[in-house]
Design a protein around this nucleic acid. Structure first.
Lengths: 226, 226
DNA sequence: CATAAGGCAAGAGCAGTGCTCTCGTTTTAG
DNA sequence: CTAAAACGAGAGCACTGCTCTTGCCTTATG
């Protein structure tokens, strides 16, 4: 689509990549609050003003890093999945991959699931990138059909209608009841990971591995994966 | 214990309070990243250097706000609880209060459950303040005994031992199995609230009320509250 | 091939920040 | 009453994001 033609374009692409790389490096050492365009420029031996040819503002750089991080997390989750395996096994693999990636890249994870950066959020690009894990989990639920009904817990009308609309709009092929289960285990998964990465389990489930594995199984139960 | 004696002490206490108040005001408008000591000083008509007589650094101010926020959230949760009501009802009340407080004070909530501020976390004062909601939920579980056993899901040995140690150290009076359930519904509750406050449900469970109420009931199921 | 146009790096500069130090003044305690 | 401590204000340092201007160099066009 946008192939690189001239030497200038090649240089631009390389420098853009180097800037993000260095920014990611600084991010992993001190967090997004400490990330400064000037220090990135210094590390790359260029004038601070030159960075603005590549990223119009600090927030834009962060947004680019966020998109890359969503991609990396999605890649990790999808790469760990084994589409031929039993759904319950697949669920455990994806959950484990998400957790591992988050623990290995806490500051990038914080960019995605921590306090939102003031300026950015709205851009629609992030939602597509951000729902990769969710979509994959949805596919696992589909593969797990027929789901274990579990306790009878009918949806209230308002929720049922809302979920029906979302399932149709997103073309997920899930019933409102299934989508509800999906959203709940999805948020539970990231709630767990967030608590671990942000140190909320520090005095209790510390290390969090055993609790996490137990939780993954309970979430599979709840989702109805056999 | 530390009564205010002199006029100077009174003035100091008042000014400390006013600084936090103004800081909270700015926080609620733009988030912690935008909070600046200088602007707080300006709003209070004092020199920026004078603030440092009251808070030795920006991070210390933020830590003070964090402690206050933990208190406010704990107050909201405990205030909504009705110790005489049925445990399941109590659980719903506490969950609803947490959610309401979070939605009403998103930036303060972000201070507590969002990306950790680089410098602070460790201080032990925060854990006591931070576990108020957790402790209250634990009391509700206790009041709900005997809990519904639900699906048989024995704890692995490592998790069992870990939970046994924590339950004893924290003097919770819960079995390892009960504590595990508690930690899971606790993290699930805050996972849900965090997703809602940070806009992660934006294209799906939006508004999040119906899903939240459904989730609260499912968490009560899981916890074993009848 | 020459020339005009646009991309580019660099420097100076502005407004803002956290934080420190010093200097008078005021309040407290002995 | 006096010495000590607390205090407010101002200047100043090092840093930040961001803008503007200047001059160079790579493109694309005639």
């Amino acid at each position: 689509m946008n192939a690189i033609r001239t030497a200038r374009e090649r240089a631009r692409a390389e420098l853009t990549h180097e800037i993000k790389q260095e920014a990611r490096r600084q991010l992993s050492e001190a967090g997004s609050a400490q990330l400064s365009l000037r220090s990135v420029a210094r590390a790359l031996g260029m004038a601070s003003s030159a960075i603005y040819r590549y990223f119009p503002s600090r927030d834009e750089l962060l947004t680019a890093l966020i998109l890359d991080a969503y991609d990396a997390l999605g890649e990790a989750a999808e790469g760990a999945d084994l589409p031929q395996a039993a759904p319950r096994e697949r669920w455990a693999l994806v959950c484990g991959a998400v957790r591992e990636w988050a623990v290995a890249h806490p500051h990038e994870y914080a960019l995605l699931y921590g306090t939102p950066v003031p300026g950015y959020r709205a851009p629609v690009e992030t939602v597509a990138a951000g729902t990769r894990v969710l979509r994959r989990c949805g596919e696992i639920l589909l593969a797990g059909r027929p789901l274990d009904p579990g306790l009878p817990a009918p949806l209230e009308e308002e929720l049922d209608e809302q979920m029906r609309g979302v399932a149709e709009a997103a073309d997920l092929g899930l019933t409102p009841e299934e989508l509800t289960r999906l959203l709940l285990v999805w948020s539970q998964l990231f709630g767990l990971v967030t608590f671990e990465v942000f140190g909320q389990f520090n005095g209790s489930a510390d290390p969090a591995g055993p609790l996490f594995r137990h939780a993954v199984a309970r979430m599979a139960d709840f989702a109805g994966l056999r």
